[in-house]
Nucleic acid binder design. Sequence first.
RNA 1: GCGGAAGUGGCGGAAUUGGCAGACGCGCAGGACUUAGGAUCCUGUGGCCGAGAGGCCGUGGGGGUUCAACUCCCUCCUUCCGCACCA
Length: 830
Amino acid sequence: MAEYDPQVIESKWQKVWERQKAFEADADPDREKYYVLEMLPYPSGTLHMGHMRNYTIGDTVARYRRMRGYNVVHPMGWDAFGLPAENAAIQRGIHPRDWTLGNVAEFKKVCYRFGFSYDWRREIASCDPEYYRWNQWIFLRMFERDLAYRKKSRVNWCPKCATVLANEQVVNGCCWRHEDTPVEARDLDQWFFRITRYAEELLTGLDAIAGGWPERVVTMQRNWIGKSRGARVRFDVAELSGKSIEVFTTRIDTIFGASAIVLAPSHPLIAELLAGSPSRAEAEAQLGRMRQTSVKAEDVATAEKIGFPTGRHAVNPFSGEKIPIWVANFVLMDYGTGAIMAVPAHDERDFEFCTKYKLNIPIVIQPSDGPPLTPGNQKKAFPEHGKLVNSGPYSGLASEVALARMSADAEKGKFGRGETTFRLRDWGISRQRYWGTPIPVIYCEKDGVVPVPDDQLPVRLPEKVAITGMGQSPLAGVPEFVNTKCPKCGGPARRETDTMDTFVDSSWYYLRYLDPHNEQKPFDPAKARYWFPVDQYIGGIVHAILHLLYARFFTKVLRDLGHVSADEPFTRLFCQGLVLKGGTAMSKSKGNVVVAMDMAVKYGADTGRLYTLFAAPPEKDMEWSEQSVEGCSRFLNRLFRLVERYAPIVRSHAASAGELGGASEKEKALLRKTHQTLRRVTYDFESRWHFNSAIAIVMELVNEIHAQEPLTEGARPAVAKEVLELTTLMVAPMAPHLAEELWEMLGHAGGLARASWPQYREEFAAEEEVEIVIQVNGRVRARIVVQAGLSQDDLVASGKAEPRVAEELKGKAIVKIIVVPDKLVNLVVR
RNA sequence: GCGGAAGUGGCGGAAUUGGCAGACGCGCAGGACUUAGGAUCCUGUGGCCGAGAGGCCGUGGGGGUUCAACUCCCUCCUUCCGCACCA
């Protein structure tokens, strides 16, 4: 008897699939397409089972869809630019490209070993000039439309490294390499994508995809875009005629309670306000300190509120009241107008600030129910809507009414207007790094900023670069790269030395897959018309905001450029859970990884795949358990032995399905179980991807075939064939190598990579007999087996006849009878 | 602080969406086969009471709706995740 040897079987079928080109798919207007995609991986060193979960889910879905007859495109590629490659270069003196390509080769080997059904002809790597030239091309198109622009922006700067740090390289406000050196803020000229132009559409577009995306992701995106309606109001500066300050507020109804105007430390008007102010010297010293603080969000959020008065005043346009103008660290320059009106009684932050600096706290909103606020009893801000008081002509109005009326009045008085703002900011794409896409721009003394002409693309990354992690952008140290000619005047010019954020690479790669070798365009719109959008996208929740938002943005830009017609790139999104070991996510740095290749060598890829699907529903985190892996291995072994045992019977007979009639009771029971299993597995695959329960029920089926041995004595080949073939097909998307082997054992030539998913048959699945639970007052008192479809009256009668039930009914009156057909009878007695 | 998700045996989890709680797997216990088994097969396995038939309790806590609640409503607790001075 042959043993189940996954090493032999898996390698055998991987070669067959390759020879058959089983997973290559091309546009075919006559067939319905299905584009399933796992998020572009960063090819880091060793692949562990945390990675494999993502691909296993995607592959299972891809294989299932193929069996359902779809024309499935399932590509794979590499997010090959990025900081880790540069770190490797610094630490080991290896070129980032060599390090990256080495990892890619390793990654690919593991994907192959796990039998993932990718169309490898479509493979791309973002560090390939044939890929990133199109990043540059898209950048230029965006530049032409003012969607790419340059402005000064604040970055983290380590004075010891003399370089810019990414946010994640800032640890506790200090450089990750120099933990005693506080990070400084610096302003550099940087490139931005004007994603805010699409803010409204990125928000409304969520409604269209909401049904196909996890709700939490939609919510996170919505919050990130952060639309808020309010008003912009102008306050004149009392001491400087003709000067004014605009604030943004969502609560114009509280404006009579404003006790100060507060500016962000980098507000442009500060210099003018301070010129000639009595408190100038002290104020400038404070300002200097404030401007040094870190850029990191957490640090900003937890910092204590500090501020100082400018000595100037603003005039409240509604009340005519003069209030002081302050500067404080908690006001953000890049949200709203960079200035706020502080209404301490009705805003928590303002309350904290004004309490600290002993500013007035006038109450202008009273709760619509509950005790009224008084200066004596107010311990914290009251930020809710309510009824206006001390608000001149608006006193007595409800907030909701006042908001609209005061906004309209501000507009009439020409000192304000209704306005909508977004929390979303433009996307800064400049990185002072080597291993990324060069930004295709040239600076000429005469012509200024000059885009690189299309026919000079790609702007290639130079090979020989000193990467030290110190100093400015590495490319600035390569004179052959920097020094060039101005495309306009031909005079001497220098190239931009920053590279693009790697999120640019992953913002449109799903379109390049559709036409990966096109040398004329990023992709052929005709091909995109067939394949795009992605039907099912699969990846980690970590990318819920940025990557997905950027990809949506790019899709809209490319649509407006006329390259695609879809509004959204991903119709459905699935976020798989993490793989934990010892309670924390598997990661190399934590040292708790289960190496994917080790898994394949010890148990085989099919066992690894099956366990990943079996241990938990795919959207939930799962804890890795080696012992449970053994369980899956045992199951596949059992299945192998089962088919091996009966395969000769099946093969000896060229059975046709028509011979299933007239089966014995035992055979009928088995056919029933098989078709019920198929019904349930199909349901799990179609609806919610609960592969764990699909596998469980197939295990039950296999157990039943084993236990009852209905096929041994005088077994009917037609029944054996039906049962074993369906079982094999059901596990095929999950354990594809073994399924192929079983399929061959059962007498099929040519493999099942393109076999059809079977249709369950109701006439086999239907139960002839059902177990009915008989309850008295909701408690189970008996179970009876009856013919299916029995009438309610018959069920009640049979139930009452049960001795245990009769006993309970003795001396009591039945007040209500509930019958659930084929399931349950509940007799309510008193 | 705001937003989201989740709490079921010793463990991972199931319950086709209001109808038998604990499927399936792991672990554990007992047995069979074996020179041997960490292979394979069989049996048992939520808690308490009982020799047994059987009974009672049980899905984070408390309350409610219902003939019937892991499932729906209210409330509290715990854990995880995301955002975080957004005016």
